[in-house]
Lab assay of single mutants.
Amino acid sequence: MQIFVKTLTGKTITLEVEPSDTIENVKAKIQDKEGIPPDQQRSIFAGKQLEDGRTLSDYNIQKESTLHLVLR
């Protein structure tokens, strides 16, 4: 499925993911596309910070959902 990741600069990245993917996985995909190390990424969805060990389905993130990426 496709999800979108919006950065603070307003750029939107499209990722191909599975509901079973962990947040860690997703951060690795963002690193592949953007070169941002996962330890600098904070992902926010529906106002909640997403934890690395959880999966997209844990957070009820579905296709075409938009995550927000904040850098630390």
Rank of each mutant, 00 (worst) to 15 (best):
M1F: 15
M1T: 03
M1S: 03
M1G: 01
M1D: 01
Q2D: 04
Q2P: 06
F4P: 00
F4L: 03
F4A: 04
F4H: 07
F4G: 01
K6S: 06
K6A: 07
K6I: 14
T7M: 14
T7W: 11
T7I: 14
L8Y: 13
L8C: 14
L8D: 12
L8N: 13
L8G: 10
L8M: 12
L8S: 13
T9N: 12
T9P: 03
T9E: 11
T9H: 12
T9R: 11
G10S: 02
G10V: 01
K11L: 10
K11F: 09
I13R: 00
I13P: 00
I13T: 00
I13F: 13
I13C: 03
T14H: 05
T14E: 07
T14Q: 09
T14A: 09
L15R: 00
L15V: 07
L15Q: 01
E16S: 11
E16M: 12
E16N: 11
E16P: 03
V17M: 03
V17R: 01
V17F: 03
V17W: 01
E18I: 11
E18W: 12
E18H: 14
E18M: 14
E18C: 10
P19H: 04
P19M: 11
P19S: 09
P19L: 09
S20G: 11
D21K: 01
D21C: 05
D21P: 00
D21F: 06
D21M: 10
T22Y: 05
T22H: 01
T22E: 01
T22Q: 02
I23D: 01
I23G: 00
I23E: 04
E24G: 13
E24T: 06
E24A: 14
E24I: 09
N25H: 12
N25A: 13
N25R: 14
N25S: 14
N25G: 08
N25I: 14
V26G: 02
V26Q: 00
V26I: 13
V26H: 01
V26P: 01
V26M: 06
K27W: 11
K27S: 05
K27C: 11
K27G: 03
K27R: 08
K27Y: 09
K27I: 13
A28H: 12
A28F: 12
A28W: 13
A28C: 06
A28R: 15
K29A: 08
K29E: 00
K29V: 04
K29S: 03
K29H: 05
K29Q: 08
K29Y: 07
I30Q: 00
I30S: 03
I30G: 02
I30V: 08
I30L: 08
I30R: 03
I30F: 11
I30C: 04
Q31R: 12
Q31L: 11
Q31V: 07
D32F: 11
D32M: 13
D32N: 10
D32Y: 10
K33Y: 11
K33P: 06
E34A: 13
E34L: 15
E34P: 04
G35N: 07
G35R: 07
G35I: 03
I36D: 07
I36W: 14
I36S: 07
I36A: 08
P37V: 08
P37G: 10
P37T: 08
P38I: 15
D39G: 09
D39C: 12
Q40A: 10
Q40C: 12
Q40G: 11
Q40E: 11
Q40M: 12
Q40I: 11
Q41P: 08
Q41M: 15
R42K: 13
R42P: 12
R42G: 14
R42Q: 14
R42S: 14
R42Y: 15
S43G: 12
S43T: 15
S43Q: 14
S43F: 15
I44K: 03
I44W: 14
I44G: 04
I44Q: 05
F45D: 04
F45P: 01
F45A: 04
F45R: 03
A46D: 12
A46G: 10
G47A: 04
G47Q: 05
G47H: 07
K48E: 12
K48S: 10
K48H: 11
K48Q: 13
K48I: 14
Q49K: 10
Q49W: 15
Q49I: 15
Q49V: 15
Q49Y: 15
Q49G: 05
Q49P: 12
Q49M: 13
E51N: 06
E51H: 09
E51Q: 09
E51D: 10
D52E: 07
D52P: 09
D52W: 04
D52S: 06
G53C: 06
G53H: 14
G53L: 09
R54T: 05
R54M: 13
T55L: 07
T55E: 01
T55H: 05
L56D: 02
L56C: 02
S57N: 10
S57A: 14
S57W: 08
S57L: 10
S57V: 07
S57H: 09
S57Y: 08
D58L: 02
D58H: 12
Y59H: 03
Y59W: 01
Y59F: 04
Y59M: 03
Y59V: 03
N60M: 07
N60D: 10
N60F: 06
N60T: 04
N60W: 05
I61C: 02
I61E: 02
I61M: 03
Q62E: 10
Q62A: 09
K63Q: 13
K63H: 15
K63I: 06
K63M: 09
K63G: 13
E64Y: 15
E64P: 01
E64F: 15
E64T: 05
S65A: 12
S65C: 05
S65D: 14
T66C: 05
T66Y: 07
T66K: 03
T66I: 13
T66W: 07
L67N: 01
L67A: 00
L67Y: 01
H68G: 03
H68K: 07
H68V: 13
H68E: 11
H68P: 00
L69W: 03
L69R: 00
L69G: 00
L69M: 12
L69F: 05
L69H: 02
V70Q: 08
V70G: 05
V70T: 07
L71S: 09
L71E: 10
L71V: 11
L71C: 06
L71A: 09
R72K: 13
R72N: 12
R72G: 11
R72D: 11
